[in-house]
Write a protein that binds this DNA or RNA. Structure first.
Length: 983
RNA sequence: GCCCUCGUAGCCCAAUCGGCAGAGGCAGCGGACUUAAAAUCCGCUCAGUGUGGGUUCGAGUCCCACCGGGGGCACCA
């Protein structure tokens, strides 16, 4: 990755046909010339305030002093995975948008940082390595080189000094360093006035040591002093933000690795590869992202993101407020033996009077307790047949129901919406009514949410209602339904049937009743208000080769020990076999086996970690490929820093908050919506940890987020359903306007969707360069419509962008001779008006990222100049400048031909002269009852009273009014008068 | 079922604060240039804004209900 020696840029030769026509070949020569020049001159290097990148080859520096901080712009793209499959025309859309914006802002005088790095760990390179035996690093580097070449041809203005790959040892070092920061931190929920924040684990140790914080759980009552090293680590592991735990995880035999919840589809399959995923209890690394649940939700109010992404994140975190309510448990047969509590979570504590039974998830640990009751040996008399599940005893019923539930995949459990369950033989006491409620197990209650237990309110919940009907359980409505409502009422209303000698909720609204019952629960000790989350801790280890190793070793006790910073990075060992052990995709008995475990020499090491050389065992899992993308927004700002992931000064300059309460973060982030709850959630989490620990000044990584739409394409199938080459399909339109599609004389069917090789509808950027050139391709993609919108690719429409650039070219260059035809002289009034309207309009559109309308305005100007035969420098130079963000190569070429020596990149854009924006006369519309009846040419600053008089007198108004009286006249000078007649 | 989005000309899309429905492009048609064709240039046609209500002097724009496309979530208590 360095500037290679390039031959001196050559002036583009004339076209093969002997003319200087702006065709694909000429465009190509111009484009390559300027791409070489930009590279050779370091045109897009942006200076940092401090450090190795503080100076650039073009001599720019960050000017010190007040006001300088406002003059920067940080735009970034979601970085690509270098797949080696190559790009299609849809891939560069976002990169073009950021490039256009970056170029525009450079011309506005801002210091613009824009670069592209590569997210290079991950499965495809590893799978390719497994197949070929080639090291994934080799594959990855080849793919990056190839992708870089493809993207360079687009003319993207990236700062080449700021590129990197997540697989670079220097980058891995800091990824591992951040891991250690997280490992060596805990979440102090009381810090920051209750919002909580991460603090160094050493501060927690100090609290334990001086007794200001009591030891938790099994260690309560003991002192820190007397704990062994292993016991201390055991305590700390309950606090660390990165920790190992043995818990149910998503095990995917087909991939041979475990996966985070975010990587499992609702169908219970792996997002990547679509293999089945099973729940297994395994010892794995986790990140305590749940500690940040509230801030991850609340801080969404501080970022400028699409509502869809915000709502997906809120949804995924799934905060719901309600109450924990404890139900005392009694055995069957009425023996009040050793009461045990079932804690349920409910969002509707107001409906407690309507709770007529209790349901536990089949996996709930209390089920065993219930069955341990001696009296649970047989069914009590009177237990309905339907409750028994065909079994002779509760124990047998529960056993067989549990077995049946366990045999189903999560997907199967969801598919079957019929309510099933069995009675456990046990009862629970409703704390407010004192009623004895039967306790069921049923698989519509999930162990993974809330407490895995519910109070069932069939009068106020659809699911409970269905279950109650199936099992003949009582239904007590507690909120009055509106007149005429059928079925269960879950909305607001007046509370009914909810009073006894202890509390009276009747007549309250749902919200009032919630508040009252929570207060009562807390007073009586039978519950409390609480908040639960759907979000689970982030499972962070993978059984793969091609990922970052953990900077962790284990001593002979199995205690995890962080490696010191000076031993980073921990490099991957060389191995013969990169593959994890994978299994038949439905092999439930399989166990994960990390490939690093086979590198015995690497795993077992002797290290001196402060108390002399000792034998240690390395962690053999690797990090998920989300690790690198969780902090790369920081590294762009200081890619060569070997002292820190990012210097605080550089971070504050590029990402720091702009004013009080501002979140900070990159100014603009463009990427697909598919990362809404994966990358974007993880990156926010890491960023916040680093913020809490004082390493950075911004508390959000990406301040403004835009999701670009997808470029999709039509595909065509013949009678057999086989795809035919889309490029060779012709459209026929009959008299009625109906379109049909034909391939080799036979009619074919059109479908709409992705671009793909198998669909035979791929169009690549290379196709576009060959036929039109990169600038035409850029202009076409930017003019297709708003960035956020998905749309269909239509190759035949690209010619419109080419015609536009050809017209621009001819304003400057004679197609026959190649001579510059630009002339001097003043512009006429009409041209000045068009020119300044264009300047003003383009500025407005660019600020709002409306690239399509900005291009439309440039087309208007070009059409005007072409039609009028105007080639005056005074019109052409501003045009070339305004065009250059979209079509930078042709703009540079024309700028040079207009006699300018340097690059156009930093030329200040023209400003509109206000005096040409005000029209001499405007057309005033005269409406009668909202319908246009006449038009008047009036002065823009006409007096409203005068305008009203003119409008009333106009022939159109008089004719329409036909003598009728006038009730009211609305005057919006100077553009509109609306006359409201009587009657 | 719930949430988020988008419905304007044959197609892709404009219309900024509620004020003349049309900026731009594609396709189509006509013309110029050409021996002819392509390319280029000039000109033209085409909708009343998914449907039904409402608010307003005035609605593509605001409100309500519905229909259709795209996306997300979904037995989450």
């Amino acid at each position: 990755m360095s500037a290679q020696a390039h031959p001196a840029p050559q002036a583009p030769a004339q076209d093969a046909s002997g003319t200087w026509k702006y065709d694909a070949a000429l465009a190509g020569r111009i484009e390559l010339k300027w791409q070489d020049r930009w590279e050779a001159e370091g045109t897009f290097e942006a200076p940092n305030p401090t450090g190795p990148l503080a100076t650039t080859r073009r001599g720019a520096t960050v000017s010190p002093g007040p006001g300088a901080a406002g003059e920067k712009l940080y735009v970034m793209d979601m970085f690509p995975y270098p797949s080696g499959k190559g790009l299609h025309v849809g891939h560069p859309l976002g990169y073009l948008a950021t490039d256009v914006l970056a170029r525009y802002n450079r011309m506005r005088g801002k210091n613009v940082m824009h670069a592209l790095a590569y997210d290079a760990f991950g499965l495809p390179a590893e799978q390719y390595a497994v197949q070929t035996g080639q090291h994934p690093r080799v594959t990855t580097e080849e793919n990056i080189a190839n992708m870089r070449r493809q993207l360079r041809r687009l003319g993207l203005g990236h700062d080449a000094r700021r590129t990197f790959a997540t697989t670079d040892p220097e980058f891995v070092k800091w990824t591992q360093w951040i891991f250690l920061q997280i490992f060596n931190s805990w979440y102090d929920a009381d810090a920051d006035g209750g919002a909580g924040k991460a603090r160094p684990i050493a501060e927690l140790v100090a609290q334990f040591a001086d007794g200001s914080r009591a030891l938790p759980g099994d260690y309560a009552g003991r002192s820190w002093e007397e704990l062994s090293a292993r016991e201390r680590e055991d305590v700390l592991h309950g606090y660390r933000l990165a920790y190992v735990s043995e818990s149910p995880v998503n095990w995917c035999p087909g991939l041979g690795t475990v996966l985070a919840n975010e990587e499992v589809t609702p169908e219970g399959r792996s997002e990547r590869g679509n293999f089945p995923v099973f729940q297994r209890n395994l010892k794995q690394w986790n990140m305590r992202i749940t500690a940040y649940a509230d801030r991850l939700i609340d801080d969404l109010d501080h970022v400028d993101w699409p509502e869809a992404v915000k709502s997906m994140q809120r949804n995924w975190i799934g905060r719901s407020t309600g109450a924990h309510v404890r139900f005392a448990l009694t055995g069957s047969g009425g023996t009040e033996s050793a009461p045990e509590d079932i804690t349920v979570f409910t969002t509707r504590p107001d409906t407690l009077f309507g709770a007529t039974y209790v349901v536990l998830a089949p996996e709930h640990p209390l089920v065993d307790r219930l069955l341990a009751e001696p009296s649970a040996a047989g069914w009590e008399p009177g237990v309905p047949e339907a409750w028994r599940g065909g079994a002779a005893t509760p124990a047998e019923a529960v056993r067989s129901y549990r077995a049946a539930a366990a045999a189903k995949t999560p997907a199967e459990r969801q598919e079957d919406k019929e309510k099933t369950g069995v009675f456990t033989g046990g009862y629970a006491i409703n704390p407010v009514t004192g009623d004895r409620l039967p306790v069921f197990i049923a698989d519509y209650v999930l162990m993974g949410y809330g407490t895995g237990a519910i109070m069932a309110v069939p009068g106020g919940d659809e699911r409970d209602h269905e279950f109650a009907l199936a099992f003949g359980l009582p239904i007590v409505p507690t909120v009055a339904a509106p007149e005429g409502h059928e079925g269960v009422w879950t909305g607001d209303g007046e509370v009914i049937n909810s009073a006894n000698e202890r509390i009276d909720l009747n007549g309250m609204s749902v919200a009032e009743a919630k508040e009252a019952i929570i207060a009562w629960l807390e007073r009586s000790g039978s519950g409390e208000g609480t908040t639960t989350y759907r979000l689970r801790d982030w499972l962070f280890s993978r059984q793969r080769y091609w990922g970052e190793p953990f900077p962790i070793v284990y001593d002979e006790d199995g205690t995890a020990i962080a490696l010191p910073e000076d031993q980073l990075p921990v490099d991957l060992p060389e191995v013969d076999d990169f593959s994890p052990r994978t299994f038949p995709e439905d092999d439930l008995t399989s166990e994960p086996e990390p490939p690093l475990g086979r590198a015995a020499d690497w795993v077992h090491v002797t290290l001196d970690l402060g108390d002399g050389p000792k034998r240690y065992r390395r962690e053999t899992n690797t990090m998920p490929n989300w690790a690198g993308s969780s902090w790369y927004q920081l590294r762009y700002a200081d890619p060569a820093n070997d002292q820190a992931p990012v210097d605080t000064v550089n971070e504050a300059y590029w990402l720091g908050p702009r004013g009080q309460g501002h979140s900070g973060g990159a100014d603009l982030y463009i990427g697909g919506v598919e990362h809404a709850v994966l990358h974007l959630l993880y990156a926010r989490f890491w960023h916040k940890v680093l913020y809490d620990l004082g390493h950075i000044s911004s508390f959000e990584p990406f301040h403004k987020l835009v999701n670009q739409g997808y470029i999709q394409a039509y595909a065509y199938t013949d009678e057999r359903g086989a795809y035919v080459p889309a490029a060779e399909v012709a459209e026929r339109v009959d008299e009625s306007g109906e379109s049909t599609f034909w391939y080799q004389g036979a009619q074919v069917r059109r479908e709409y969707g992705k671009m793909g090789k198998s669909l035979k509808n791929i169009v690549t950027p290379d196709d576009m360069y060959a036929e039109y050139g990169a600038d035409t391709f850029r202009v076409y993609e930017m003019s297709m419509g708003p960035l956020e919108l998905s749309r269909a690719w239509e190759t035949r429409a690209v010619v419109g962008a080419q015609r536009f650039l050809q017209r621009v070219w001819r304003l400057v260059v004679d197609e026959e001779t190649g001579e510059t035809v630009v002339t001097g002289g003043e512009l006429d009034e009409a041209t000045l008006r068009v020119l300044h309207a264009t300047i003003a309009g383009v500025h407005e559109d660019m600020e709002a990222m409306r690239f399509n309308t900005a291009i439309a305005k440039l087309i208007v100007l070009v059409n005007h100049l072409t039609k009028e035969g105007i080639t005056a420098r005074a019109a052409v130079e501003p045009l070339v400048q305004l065009l250059s963000p979209f079509a930078p190569h042709i703009a540079e070429e024309l700028w040079e031909r207009l006699g300018h020596a340097g690059t156009i990149t930093y030329q200040p854009l023209p400003a509109a002269d206000e005096s040409y924006l005000v029209a001499e006369t405007v057309t005033c519309v005269v409406q009668v009852k909202g319908k246009v009846r006449d038009r008047l040419e009036v002065s823009p600053d006409i007096d409203p009273a005068e305008l009203e008089r003119l409008a009333l007198a106009s022939t159109g108004a008089q004719r329409t009014l036909a003598g009728a009286g006038v009730r009211k006249v609305i005057v919006r000078a100077p553009k509109l008068v609306n006359i409201v007649p009587e009657g």
